[in-house]
């Protein structure tokens, strides 16, 4: 069983990402979209939270369209987080057994 978790709330404003990570198991993927994409950048106040989760075997992805809309360059994303487009979003959904949206 693997789950794709999508987070669309800012990790600087809500606890959605923390809640998500508290249940995300090894092999799960966390996809950051909409207002959550800022959490994928290097040198932020949540970067260590993200890195710690990656160290425990949780994979991360971020939606490139939402990064670009906010003027955030893909080059500044934490190493190991994959930048995907909408087709990649769909592919991730297909590659996992379930999708959990952390609304």
């Amino acid at each position: 069983m693997s789950t794709l978790h999508t987070v669309n709330k800012s990790p600087f404003e809500r606890n959605s990402l923390d809640s998500c990570l508290s249940v995300a198991a090894e092999g799960a993927t966390v996809l950051l979209i909409e207002d959550a994409v800022g959490g994928a950048l290097q040198n932020t106040a949540v970067a260590s939270t993200v890195s710690d989760a990656m160290g425990k075997g949780v994979k991360f992805a971020v939606l490139g369209e939402d990064l670009r809309a906010r003027g955030l360059s893909a080059e500044r994303v934490i190493d190991g987080i994959s930048v995907v487009d909408y087709a990649g979003f769909v592919q991730l959904a297909c590659d996992h057994d379930n999708v959990q949206n952390w609304l």
Binding site: S10, F12, E13, D35, G38, G64, E65, D66, R68, A69, R70, G71, L72, S73, D85, Y86
Partner: peptide, 23 residues
């Protein structure tokens, strides 16, 4: 302040999300 600072970033490109780039 807080997430409001994202409003002022340069190089915003909203073509991919289909919304008006009001930056």
């Amino acid at each position: 302040m807080d997430d409001g600072v994202y409003q002022l970033t340069k190089n915003q490109d909203t073509d991919g999300i289909g919304m008006k780039n009001f930056s």
